[in-house]
Simulated assay, not measured.
Amino acid sequence: MEKLDLAKTYKSYYTAPAKPQLVEFEPNWYVTIQGQGDPDGIAFSNATEALYTLSYSIKGIYKKEEKDFTVAKLEGLWWVDGDRKALDVPREEWHWKLLIRMPDYVRAESIEDARSIAMSKKKELTVISDINYETLHEGACVQMLHVGPYAAEPESLKQIEHFLTEHRRKIRGLHHEIYLSDPRKVEPSKMKTILRYPVQSVEVVTG
């Protein structure tokens, strides 16, 4: 039985250069969970564990159907209330939605079967019941690979801002991160994170 690895099958989705680039993405299916608070806090930790627990339960169901797959990388959408910049807002006020992409063949009804399995294994993880199965269609995006600690992301974001100005684009969606490295195993200076934003063209008004 051949195991599907989304990172290898969809390389353009899970790779990015060290400099900003424009890319286009089709709709994809994800298991997701939304919350608010410090990413070092217990709510974020529980949400992450719940998402992985459900993902591995889904994997188990499809492995029995001879459709095994590698559980994909964790992703996150981030935002804050109002027009403030995230770094000007206390981390406790940050909003996030965590995602793990699923193969196209995963059926909605199997999510509920997997949820029952996951909740029986991790009864204390009640937030498993809060996980959704939904599509995300970002379309045209700008992205780049950030290498280093999360705290140093503003340096990469400045490159993205400059790139958008040069190419007459503006952000039209949420800050999107794909975590290629496990922070428990990789030292901060070597961590790799894809930074991505949906974008649109800026209309040029001529007189």
Rank of each mutant, 00 (worst) to 15 (best):
V89H: 01
F44D: 01
G35Y: 05
K97P: 00
V23F: 03
D130I: 05
A16Y: 01
H176V: 09
H146D: 07
F44C: 02
T165W: 06
P198T: 11
N46S: 13
F69G: 00
Y30N: 00
D81C: 00
S129K: 15
T32Q: 11
Y14P: 01
M1C: 05
R172K: 15
E93D: 15
E155H: 10
T32W: 01
K122I: 05
E2V: 14
I178Y: 01
K192F: 02
R196Y: 04
E2W: 07
T9I: 07
K85Q: 14
T206G: 03
V106T: 05
L54H: 05
T126K: 15
E134H: 01
S156C: 06
P20Q: 11
S45F: 08
I58G: 00
R91V: 07
L6Y: 01
L51M: 08
D81F: 01
P154K: 14
E203A: 12
Q21N: 13
W29I: 07
A152N: 14
L174C: 04
K64T: 11
S120G: 06
K11A: 14
V106Q: 03
D81E: 14
I100V: 14
E26V: 09
K3Q: 11
S129L: 11
D182Q: 10
Y30K: 02
P183L: 10
Y56W: 10
H95V: 04
I131E: 04
S181K: 10
K85S: 12
L157A: 08
Y52R: 05
G148A: 12
L174K: 15
D88E: 15
L54D: 03
T126H: 11
E166Q: 15
Y105K: 08
A114K: 04
A16K: 01
W78K: 10
A43S: 10
I160E: 02
H146N: 08
M191Q: 14
S116W: 09
A50R: 01
S12W: 05
V199F: 01
Q21G: 04
I100F: 00
F44R: 02
I58M: 03
L54R: 07
P17H: 14
E93P: 00
L174M: 12
E138N: 07
R84F: 03
D5Q: 12
W78H: 07
V202Y: 04
R107C: 03
S181H: 08
L125F: 09
M144L: 15
G35F: 03
H175T: 10
D104M: 07
K170Q: 15
K123M: 12
Y179D: 06
V204A: 14
A50T: 02
S45V: 10
W79S: 13
K3T: 15
F25P: 01
I131F: 03
R169E: 07
W94Y: 12
E24L: 12
G37D: 11
M144H: 02
A50G: 08
P198S: 10
A114H: 02
Q143S: 09
R91L: 08
R169W: 02
E24S: 12
D88F: 05
A114R: 03
P198C: 09
W94S: 07
